[in-house]
Design a protein around this nucleic acid. Sequence first.
DNA 1: GTTCTAGAAC
DNA 2: GTTCTAGAAC
Length: 186
Amino acid sequence: MTKNKGSWSLALLETMKDPLYRVISSEIAVVIKDKFPKAKYHFLILPYEDIPTVFHLTSSERHLKLMDELELLAKNVVEVTGLNSNIFQVGYHSSPSMQRLHLHVISNDYNSPCLKTKIHWNSFNTKFFWDVKYVHKEIRRNGKVNKPNPDISKQLLATELRCHKCDFRPKNMPELKQHLLSHITC
DNA sequence: GTTCTAGAAC
DNA sequence: GTTCTAGAAC
């Protein structure tokens, strides 16, 4: 039986070619705006090379160079915003839905109409989200990063909602979104 | 990944 | 009655 994740899982391959979403690029990777941003700033960094997921990265010379480049582009796009780098989270989803390796660069306001579900929240605010430094270090050390157990990923995405900046426990997403506004500084 | 929507939760 | 979540989508 062949896997069929559906054509939607290929959508990034089109978006990364669309000038409307492009922010900056280099010879080997491109930074785009996420089509459904989960915060005020939400970028994706994708290599042109057809690397489907983070689990396809190896400690080859080519991939080590690519990983450095992805981190450099993350730094560069943060500079483009003019904001302090410490408000950004940079990392990979441990169980990605979309094809083509993509590194998330997201601001920690999480103030966006596209942030709607518990899964959205937990995918950035639990161990489902893997910091780029951890992932690249693991690949350099181990030659690859291992896929997590699907049941554990599922549990992480079902984690009880909790504010990432204080110990507030919202009872639902609307309450969380309202609460997040209280952490925004102008 | 999103959209849609049934029915649970309130 | 309305809000909210969560599962199907061929």
